[in-house]
Design a protein around this nucleic acid. Sequence first.
DNA 1: GTCTATAGTCGGATAGAC
DNA 2: GTCTATCCGACTATAGAC
Lengths: 224, 224
Amino acid sequence: MRPPRNLRSVAKRLLSFTRLVQGVNVSAVTSPLVWEHVQPAAARRLLTGAVDAFAERGYQATTTRDIASRAGMSPAALYVHYPSKERLLFEISLYGHNAALEVLRSADAGDTPADRLRSLVSAFTAWHAQHHTIARVVQYELAALSPEHLAEVATIRRAISLQIEQVLTDGMAAGDFAVTDLPGTTLAVLSLSIDVARWYTPHRGDPEALGKLYADLAHRMVQA
Amino acid sequence: MRPPRNLRSVAKRLLSFTRLVQGVNVSAVTSPLVWEHVQPAAARRLLTGAVDAFAERGYQATTTRDIASRAGMSPAALYVHYPSKERLLFEISLYGHNAALEVLRSADAGDTPADRLRSLVSAFTAWHAQHHTIARVVQYELAALSPEHLAEVATIRRAISLQIEQVLTDGMAAGDFAVTDLPGTTLAVLSLSIDVARWYTPHRGDPEALGKLYADLAHRMVQA
DNA sequence: GTCTATAGTCGGATAGAC
DNA sequence: GTCTATCCGACTATAGAC
């Protein structure tokens, strides 16, 4: 005798939705405030559910049923808002890359290259900690994007890299930094912040404090 | 009218096997020398195929058909040598973790904490570059392991972390290092090397040279 | 130990009612 | 815009011949 599938799936979805609304579901940790521009609310719920699922289990291990369930919907409802699972990934990845670049551009301020570098590394690191679920999708799910979508985010990645490379170049020109391998050191500085997305969880400390620590470490790596 | 499936699949497998034997298949880059202890040869071909596939596409995106095909076999033959796809992942992950720890233990030598740290970071970084396919599986596929298998590799990961923490502690005690946040700095040093697995490809330079650069950067991060 | 064939399950995506 | 129901392909793993 088969279980009453309809009742079970409805109950599961209601439970999931309730937990979401009450905000106590530990797996649904993405702040909805970040995605306020995504309308309507159902599309936003799907997107935040996808971010959490992709970050937790990876893109390939995440099912559309899982995403829909986190948003309190049936699997079919997803396709009203997004044409495919990959498109959902792309929207997250594109937004995340742009957000990371914007964080860097806003942080590139200071009287000396050293001040600028500290500000950049601090902000970039804190962003990866604060938004570690989005960052995980940004940094570790590139291979799941379609070739066209990958090309689009790749241009943003180059801009991010250039932002760090420029301040190192300026610091070398001013004699403040001693860098023998510019591309290698650029990559190392970026790398330090990016890897935060791999291991960070909220119980591992305050994103701002981590940013300050990493700004210090990065500065020491390059100073003359 | 259906295509002749038998002939097609046999042809594909023969082609795959031929490329493997000739060693010109860019997707089959894992050196068989590393896995000489895996016997018989068929099991070793499956394992190296799995390493390459997992590193390239991720565990979840890799099919048993893909692995078998890289080894020049039918999907069913895989189960003669391994009871499941997850077991294949575990064998790779366990071996990789042990290899990484062994590299650190062998490298922990030198007259001063600074020499030891440089040696450790240099070797750990070079290993992640040299064996970037294995390293990618080790660092990015933990979530796909069964709880029991994950627990087993987690103990090795703690030993790896301790190896770095110890030399930092010794350097602080000797007054050679100025480290304010020991756990944070330990993680940062490890992080720098681990992230190499994410971006490294052979065209990005010599593993040994990268090791030297990173040893220098890590030393500068902590020196008094 | 390898094969062909397939069982049994699940996934992305669609159809059509409301 | 959401649902239920389902298609259809692909997946892991197994059965049984050789």
